[in-house]
């Protein structure tokens, strides 16, 4: 099954409803987005770097791509939840946005995840902020077959969205590098173990996180002959295919645009050694 077609993107000023701490460096932003046309699992939006005050600010200049973590439809639009990590000036300014402030949103953008076939077991591998791309996929995949979610972070305090995945009732397994929660080590080791189990075979693997993690997940899946999809987190200026800044080299030659052809791409189509 391929990803469902996306409604056309809108540009809209959204209202901050909440912007709360979610562990050490992570924040959970809730936005009221008028006219939000809905989105498919794995799609993203561009958010202005911080709230738009009385005077327009142009430094930092570029909007930030953010996965749509969760949407709740409501009259005249939707509430969008975004999970993000304080990782630079843009996200720090975003963290200062108080309820009532305005954040510019352009979305929904990109092509999301193809869903598992009926009855097919899905393995979702999320590392760091990559976890934010996987919640709606987990929910949608649950309607089609068993779902295993593997989450990894440096430590328990860095783990985002954990309680939501627990509430979904998926088979959740956690790895932390410092061993403060779940299995000590990397999330890709959990993937290796899951695919080596005697009852394994024929899974579809989804991975989102740091590039080395996705590359490793792709290798493990390929060895087990499982289809593997990755969701890339590249630098972007526009998010809708016009600046050509987010290009990633393809194995067959040429480039894919992460914002337009992705962010979800077949792991085998990416030339990882040149993917920056």
């Amino acid at each position: 099954m391929s990803a469902s077609p996306s409604p056309p993107a809108i540009r809209v000023d959204a209202e901050v409803r909440a912007n709360q701490e979610e562990g050490a460096e992570n924040r959970r932003l809730r936005l009221g987005v008028p006219g939000w046309p809905g989105s498919a699992p794995g799609q993203f939006a561009m958010l202005s770097p911080g709230s738009r005050g009385a005077a327009e600010r142009y430094d930092p200049l570029l909007p930030r791509p953010m996965a749509v973590y969760r949407t709740v439809p409501e009259a005249g639009g939707a509430e969008l939840e975004i999970l993000y990590k304080l990782s630079g000036r843009g996200t720090r300014l975003l963290a200062d946005a108080r309820p009532g402030a305005t954040v510019r949103v352009v979305g929904p953008l990109g092509v999301g995840f193809p869903l598992p076939q009926l009855g097919q077991r899905a393995l979702l591998v999320g590392g760091g902020t990559g976890i934010a791309s996987l919640y709606e996929l987990a929910a949608a995949a649950q309607a089609r077959g068993p779902v295993v979610v593997l989450l990894g972070a440096r430590s328990a305090a860095d783990l985002m969205g954990r309680a939501d995945f627990v509430a979904l009732g998926v088979d959740l397994r956690v790895a932390t590098e410092d061993g403060s929660e779940g299995t000590p080590g990397r999330v890709t080791e959990l993937l290796e173990t899951a695919l080596a189990a005697p009852d394994a075979g024929g899974e579809i693997v989804y991975a989102c996180g740091p590039t080395p993690m996705m590359r490793r997940a792709a290798e493990i899946a390929a060895r087990r002959e499982c289809r593997c999809l990755v969701s890339l987190e590249n630098r972007m200026a526009c998010g809708f295919g016009v600046c050509l800044g987010c290009a990633v080299p393809r194995t067959e030659g040429g480039f894919a645009l992460v914002c337009r052809d992705g962010p979800v791409l077949d792991a085998g189509s990416v030339r990882w050694e040149e993917a920056s």
Partner: peptide, 23 residues
Amino acid sequence: RSGNLPPRIAETPAGMLNAIGLE
């Protein structure tokens, strides 16, 4: 024509740098 290998863009103070490469 296809362009340059990434990274192709970078944010700078109130601006951005690009080298897309004729794509």
